[in-house]
């Protein structure tokens, strides 16, 4: 099945951002995920054609980066940071209780297609450890219970808002579209900075 004319037009607009078209391969792959939920054959073939490169070259790129998936993600993709610091601070416990709770393992998706999980590496939020990302939004200072509640609510269709992010959690596909550079207008939602980010400033100002 072909992409729609509108989708193809968006692809062209992504390509137009760069001095050389090949640079658009990554945002285009994000965009394919926004439409198809993972890197599909039609995605690879369309990108190859648009950028005038071989399908093998697109494959080489798409398999290099962990965010590009070979299988559909859940509507809510939960990444538990298990890099050393988060793991020690509780990430391991969170991950174990989550797999128990959902009955799925790393890179798997629940049968209802709602939740997939992934062990992730450090996500630049160590001062909020342990950190969990859902659809690549920050959920700070998590505990095993808070994450269980989080996925249950997500499966029920009303996930809590990210700690530092928009007021409502968007789906994995919608957020992939943002990464392709297509604005969803939500930048103004959420805090400027979380507590730990402000700690030094507050101390300096004598507020703490």
């Amino acid at each position: 099945m072909e992409f729609t004319a509108d989708q193809l037009k968006i692809m062209d607009s992504i390509i137009a951002r760069y001095p050389r078209s090949r640079s658009a391969v990554m945002p285009l792959l994000h965009y394919v995920q926004a439409i198809d939920g993972y890197i599909t054959p039609r995605g690879i073939e369309t990108i190859a054609k648009k950028l005038d490169i071989a399908t093998a070259e697109v494959t080489a790129v798409s398999t290099f980066y962990t965010q590009y998936r070979t299988e559909p993600a859940g509507e809510y993709h939960v990444g538990v940071c298990v890099n050393t610091l988060c793991a020690v601070m509780g990430g391991d416990a969170i991950y174990d209780s989550l797999t128990d709770h959902l009955g799925i393992e790393n890179h798997e998706t629940t049968k209802d297609g709602k939740v997939s999980i992934e062990r992730i590496e450090c996500n630049a939020a160590c001062d909020y450890a342990p950190v969990v990302m859902v659809n690549w939004e920050f959920y700070d200072n998590q505990t095993p219970q808070s994450v269980k509640d989080l996925v249950d609510a997500a499966r029920a269709g009303n996930p809590p808002a990210p700690t530092r992010g928009p007021k409502t959690l968007r789906t994995w596909k919608q957020n992939s579209e943002v990464l392709a550079g297509l604005s969803d207008g939500l930048a103004n939602e959420g805090v400027s900075a979380g507590g730990p980010s402000l700690l030094g400033l507050k101390i300096a100002k004598g507020e703490k």
């Binding site: 050389r20 090949r22 980066y65 962990t66 590496e121």
Partner: peptide, 27 residues
Amino acid sequence: LTLHAGAGAYICGEETALLDSLEGFRG
């Protein structure tokens, strides 16, 4: 000014890998 999203690869912080990635290659 163009904003470009990576896709999950620590090595792309290494500056030359970053450039390859930005050019549309494996980082």
